[in-house]
Design a protein around this nucleic acid. Structure first.
Length: 472
RNA sequence: CGGGGAGUAGCGCAGUUGGUAGCGCACCUGCUUUGGGAGCAGGAGGCCGCGGGUUCAAGUCCCGCCUCCCCGACCA
């Protein structure tokens, strides 16, 4: 039983490694139409865990789920100039239905501001109706020129929140609340991804937004990935769709709005933040399977003991799965569970049982330890928490080691070949620094204050610093 | 749309001067195995991208078309 490379190594060819993980961990594959994606059961189980964790936070922030149509009249898009300009090139448009040419073409939603706002306009009459906070889980379509599974697909899954507020300050505070309490918290405490938070430059802003706030993380190849964004839309959409209300003084006003989203791209973030040359590594708080109990053999009571242990783990609230497929070799099964990134594996065999122990193996650091059978249920919970913390710490260290201070554009461009560069605002502001970086394949991921805190929506570039990188 | 590749078994690939379609992995059956991708034996699986042409004969040569992948511009 020779030990061969299971995957293309990250160092050899990172994109190929990514593809290998998708296939071998049975996460996803391409569909027959270019840019479409089939999410396989194990991949979807992880996505459902992401949804559950995000959804709980969204609801805690006061938003309610609703559902709006997939099809949007084409004319709706033309009502907001910047929005239509940004999205026109990537719209999928239905021109025929029921065997006949449609009177007005119908757009397959690329995002739902226009359709949702047209209903908010009907639902909002009074300041008492505000804030109005809705979210939907949906698929959207953007006709992408160069798709990559999970990272950039023509059809993708996401949640999109849309809110209306009585004044600008309330909208501003809510956009930041979503950024912090939904996105940052999920990414840090569940996904174990040390994200940076900041403001987008005008160039990187959402089409139609006044201000875009973002969460960005460094992938293992040093590139940046935008993970969740929260937009302050001002009153532009309210004016385009007629979202007005009477305030306390009986004055007619336009609502102030936000929209915010995080997508199945988070699956790509998971893979590229934690995956290694043995496959995926899923943080325990996210993992649909936290512990696999693997019966080495079924003889001498090992099968029964493994089954009993799996039940005890489930009863203790741990997401456990039993593997008694002894028609497959031990090594084969171990490799498969490692590819899928299950955080902990408990091996139960006759040899262990004779000693009253089991072997607990951690996916994050590959360590193995023999523990007493009676106490393993309690101890494995500690192992899971420890593993969660270790994955975050490892990703944070990687980002810190891969980030350099750059005093010039040339230094920034150089550093961005392998990681992040922090550039003083004045350096970026002079001579269209951002445009010149873009020309070199480097983009401004976010702006923040030099002390790392979030700037105000209007704070000047000269007083801020930028994190720049190559990005997905 | 510009530049570069590739279409042959589920996946990855080979196929010579044209001459009956092959290899590895995966799959099925049986036996032996199982503490880090098991071994042996037997077996199943093909519109060789599509259309035309040359030829006694085309995966192979010629013409046309289609699709996919990689690198750039757009982007969650």
């Amino acid at each position: 039983m020779p030990k061969a490379e299971v995957l293309t190594s990250q160092e050899t060819d990172f994109p190929q490694w990514y593809q290998d993980v998708l296939a071998k961990a049975e996460l996803a594959e391409g569909g027959p139409v270019r840019g479409t994606m089939v999410i396989r059961p194990y991949g979807y189980a992880i996505w459902e865990r992401m949804q559950a964790e995000l959804d709980a936070r969204i609801k805690a922030a006061g938003a309610q789920n609703a559902y709006f149509p997939l099809f949007i009249p084409e004319s709706y898009f033309r009502r907001e100039a910047e929005h239509v300009e940004g999205f026109s090139p990537e719209l999928a448009v239905v021109t025929h239905g029921g065997g006949k040419k449609l009177e007005e073409p119908v757009v397959v939603r690329p995002t739902s501001e226009t359709i949702i706002d047209s209903f908010l306009a009907k639902w909002i009459q009074s300041y008492r109706d505000l804030p109005l906070l809705v979210n939907q889980w949906a698929n959207v379509v953007r006709w992408e020129l160069r798709p990559r599974l999970f990272l950039r697909t023509t059809e993708f899954l996401w949640q999109e929140g849309h809110t209306a507020h009585a004044d600008e300050d309330d909208a501003h505070r809510y956009a930041l609340r979503i950024l912090r309490e939904v996105y940052e918290d999920f990414m840090v405490s569940v996904l174990a991804a040390p994200v940076l938070v900041g403001r987008k430059t005008d160039r990187e802003r959402f089409a139609g937004a006044k201000t875009t706030w973002t969460t960005e993380a460094m992938m293992r190849d040093g590139k940046a990935l935008q993970m969740g964004t929260s937009h302050e839309l001002g009153q532009a959409f309210a004016k385009a769709f007629g979202i007005t209300f009477l305030d306390e003084n009986g004055q007619q006003s336009f609502a102030w709005q936000t929209s915010w989203g995080a997508s199945s791209r988070l699956m790509g973030a998971l893979i590229m933040t934690h995956g290694d040359d043995a496959g995926l590594r899923v943080p325990p708080r996210l993992a649909p399977v936290q512990v696999v109990v693997l019966a080495v053999r079924t003889e001498d009571g090992a099968g029964e003991a493994a089954s009993k242990l799996a039940h005890q783990l489930k009863a203790a609230g741990i997401r456990a799965e039993l593997d008694v497929r002894t028609d497959l070799s031990f090594g084969r099964r171990v490799v498969n569970w490692e590819l899928k990134g299950v955080p902990a594996r408990i091996e139960v065999g006759p040899r262990d049982l004779a000693a009253g122990t089991v072997v607990v193996s951690r996916r994050d650091d590959t360590s193995k330890v023999s523990l007493p059978l009676e106490s393993v249920v309690v101890q494995v919970a500690d192992v899971l928490e420890s593993s969660q913390a270790a994955l975050f710490a490892e990703a944070l260290r990687r980002r810190e080691e891969g980030t350099v201070q750059a005093a010039s554009l040339a230094e920034a461009e150089e550093a961005a070949q392998t990681g992040f560069a922090v550039v003083p605002g004045p350096v970026l502001a002079a001579d269209d620094g951002e445009g010149r970086l873009n020309g070199a394949g480097v983009s401004v991921r976010l702006l923040r204050r030099p002390d790392g805190s979030l700037p105000g929506p209007e704070e000047n570039l000269a007083d801020l610093e930028a994190v720049v990188a190559r990005a997905y």
